[in-house]
């Protein structure tokens, strides 16, 4: 696998989200990702960045364009924060589970919208969510 482009964006306040979304859209356009896939990627990204601000007081996102020799080209986003971590990931990944009196759709919904979804968390240390959306998938 090779990384063609990369950029790290700090997320500290709401306004950073707009800048971040634009960068993700730019990366998706660069590899000519179709509109539906791009919309799904942007929406998943929006959910994850919102979680980061809400539950972990912000963090950073590594944005990359990646390419596999045999597979495809895609956009990979790595959201990392140093928040409280998630006590029960299995629960958090279920539709309807929320500690924030919300709908509990962000994590499971984001997973449905992307090609690859990975979450790692450590209590007291933070959470890292990595998503990849292939250009054609």
């Amino acid at each position: 696998m090779i990384v063609l482009n990369k950029d790290t964006i700090k997320i500290e306040k709401e306004q950073d989200v707009v800048f971040f979304r634009n960068r993700v859209a730019e990366y998706a356009d660069k590899i000519k990702m179709g509109l539906v896939n791009k919309t799904k990627l942007l929406t998943a990204a929006s959910e994850l960045v919102r979680n980061m601000l809400r539950y972990a007081n912000g963090g950073k996102v590594l944005c990359e364009i990646i390419s596999h020799a045999t597979l495809q080209t895609g956009v990979r986003l790595t959201f990392s924060d140093q928040g409280p971590g998630i006590p029960d990931i299995e629960k958090a990944m279920q539709d309807g589970y929320s500690t924030g009196k919300s709908l509990g759709l962000g994590l499971p919904g984001a997973k449905r919208l992307v090609s690859i979804f990975d979450i790692k968390t450590q209590l007291g240390k933070g959470t890292t969510v990595t998503i990849t959306k292939w250009k054609n998938g």
């Binding site: 919309t39 799904k40 449905r112």
Partner: peptide
């Protein structure tokens, strides 16, 4: 349409 499709998959 892309937004509508995404909303359904998100489950909202």
């Amino acid at each position: 349409p892309a937004v509508a499709i995404t909303l359904i998959e998100l489950g909202l």
